[in-house]
């Protein structure tokens, strides 16, 4: 289950956004929401890329052995 712990992290992050940072995301015509969405997508893709990197490293080590 540890594999999917990042989903829990994202959910708790959005819960946090609902309470503490409401004012911030409602300001400036809500443009911060768009930026947050872009950052979430980008971070998600990068997390996948890091996993891919680690898997390839693992394969390389297996090949050496």
């Amino acid at each position: 289950m540890r594999k999917y712990s990042w989903i829990v992290m994202l959910v708790s992050l959005s819960a946090f956004a609902q309470t503490a940072t409401d004012d911030f995301f409602y300001s400036s015509g809500k443009i911060y929401v768009v930026i947050a969405v872009l950052v979430i997508i980008f971070v998600g893709l990068m997390l996948y890329l890091i996993r891919l990197d680690r898997k390839i490293t693992k394969l390389e080590k297996q090949n050496e052995a």
Binding site: I31, V34, I35, L38, V39, F42, V43
Partner: peptide, 11 residues
């Protein structure tokens, strides 16, 4: 750097 560019690019 890219996260900075995404946020900075807008703001």
């Amino acid at each position: 750097c890219i996260i900075y560019a995404i946020v900075g690019g807008f703001l």
